[in-house]
């Protein structure tokens, strides 16, 4: 492969890696900060992707819209709607043990998937939404537009990281960790556990929606196939735990490393004869499942273990 080919492969790798970084940072806000188990990431991602797709794509008779509005509007709507869904589910579940939230979040993802497939007036069913724009598309085409999109995605990653970082260091983040590590103690000093948990779940859901929107713009076409739970929910969990739950740097590092392993094994398996190529995709899944078990048992803190920021207590005296 010539040099520019490698460069552009790297760019497309980093675009997907960036989208996964946003998902991972969002998951870190829910799980790493608050200990909330979300098994329905794919659902929030789908809400974001479809809202952005419908808001920004050109008018079509196939489904409602598209409204041909600016991409920023799409991102805001994607985050808002996804956040509202997150709020509704969090309201019901955060007062219970994390397992209940896990069960309910699987349910919400399933309902969203059903709605996406069946409500053709809204989403064009299994045919999907097409002609989704990319930013500055009228000025750049082909590989240049890919470069522009790469910059766009990483600006969003930087914003997400900044938000996550500020939240983590803030008094709010400290309360979240207190709740995560000792709920009773946090409650006894007067912290409203349910309200803090709901907030962290909603903020995470907003960014999951934004990640979905990014992928809709990247693919320029979005159909129910793109919300495969295995590729979104499961991979995101492996990424966060391997990278280091609770650590934002770990979330991004985990996203990039696991995405690199995942895409490289795909390149390797593409070289195999066709009969083995289909089988090898199951071997990849099996290995990633085993890898998660390994990480959970031996390597739980992840690559970048959580480091609580130092308390900056002023001494009076």
């Amino acid at each position: 492969m010539e040099l520019s080919g490698i460069l552009f492969y790297l760019i497309s790798f980093l675009i997907m890696g960036g989208i996964y970084s946003v998902i991972c940072l969002a998951l870190n806000m829910q799980w790493g900060f608050g200990g909330l188990f979300n098994a329905g990431i794919a659902g929030f991602y789908a809400v974001g992707a479809y809202s952005a797709a419908i808001i920004t794509s050109a008018n079509t008779p196939n489904h409602v819209g598209g409204f041909d509005l600016p991409i920023v509007v799409g991102l805001v709507v994607a985050g808002t709607l996804s956040g509202i869904v997150g709020w509704a589910i969090a309201r019901i579940c955060v007062r219970l043990k994390a397992d209940y939230l896990a069960m309910a979040s699987i349910g919400i993802a399933e309902i969203i998937r059903l709605a996406v497939i069946n409500e053709e007036w809204l989403t064009n069913g299994s045919l999907g939404v097409s002609r989704i724009p990319r930013p500055l598309e009228e000025f750049f085409t082909g590989r240049e537009s890919e470069m522009v999109f790469f910059v766009f995605v990483w600006i969003i990653v930087a914003i997400t990281f900044w938000v996550a970082h500020r939240l983590y260091k803030s008094p709010w983040g400290r309360v979240m960790r207190a709740i995560r590590d000792n709920e009773a103690a946090a409650e006894s000093v007067g912290k409203d556990v349910q309200s803090f948990r709901t907030q962290s779940f909603v903020i995470g859901a907003i960014f999951m929606g934004v990640a979905g929107a990014l992928s809709a713009h990247y693919f320029k076409f979005f159909s129910p196939d793109a919300t495969e739970p295995l590729l979104i929910t499961f991979l995101a969990w492996v990424m966060l735990i391997a990278g280091g739950s609770g650590n934002n740097k770990g979330a991004v590092a985990g996203a990039l490393i696991i995405w690199a392993i995942w895409s490289m094994t795909e390149i390797i398996t593409q070289q195999l004869p066709p009969d083995w190529a289909t089988r090898s995709s199951y071997i990849r899944m099996l290995l990633i499942g085993l890898f998660l078990q390994f990480v959970l048992q031996r390597f739980r803190a992840g690559l970048f273990p959580e480091k609580a920021p130092k308390l900056n207590v002023k001494s009076h005296g």
Partner: peptide, 22 residues
């Protein structure tokens, strides 16, 4: 905390399924 076992079982689901598919 049992939530780690929940995460593990999420992975075990995938292990079971991929072995069946294989």
């Amino acid at each position: 905390p049992t939530i780690y076992t929940v995460i593990a079982s999420f992975g075990v689901a995938l292990i079971f399924r991929s072995v069946v598919q294989l």
